[in-house]
Design a protein around this nucleic acid. Sequence first.
DNA 1: GTTCCGATTTTCT
DNA 2: GAAAATCGGAACA
Length: 216
Amino acid sequence: VTGEPVLRQRVVEPATGRLLRPFFERYTPTVARDLLGRVLVRVVEGRRLSGVIVETEAYRGARDPASHAYRGRTARNEVMYGEAGYTYVYFAYGFHHMLNLTTEAAGTPGAVLIRAIEPLEGASIMMANRGVGSLETAANGPGNLTKALRIDRSLNGEDTVTSRRLFIENGAKTAKVAVSSRVGIAVGASYKWRFYVEGSRFLSKGRPSAGEAQNP
DNA sequence: GTTCCGATTTTCT
DNA sequence: GAAAATCGGAACA
């Protein structure tokens, strides 16, 4: 059982290029990999801020010890158990908001952490939101990205399939994909569930967690 | 180049 | 009360 259903339904809205629900309703690592090269769009005060997704991580429910859903359903992770294609935004380390997109069928918890984007539209606004002068550091990490795009917990539970404030567009999808273990986790490092665009200048600084108890 | 550490809040034990 | 899906600057090599 691979858990990867074949896509039979329309995944992209032809008129707008927006990703639709069936795109997100798949096996979480598949969604994470397939999000590379797509365009994350945030609308603030009528302006589009956008960027090409270049780095993601998959977090899957009950059998993934690094997932917020590992210990079951709570008020915080509730949205991970709902329909796919919604935002899961939480506050971490007392400083940073993290943007995730929910995945899998309703009842099966899963989410993809968006870790970095290459700015496309509104790059100067994103740099100003961050207080930096270089394009490369405007959204190169999950905490930096949410600051650049003005994303906080008021956007938790947003339906990206219908939202006018936050959604994903099809994009060019030309990326050469590389894989590693995830960043900043203490458990579950043996899962190679971080996906990134090989050679991109816009990746996060985080180092993948050392694979614990790696087999010789 | 690398490692260490502090900032600050939410969440769950 | 401790840990956390982070970041950037300081210290050291």
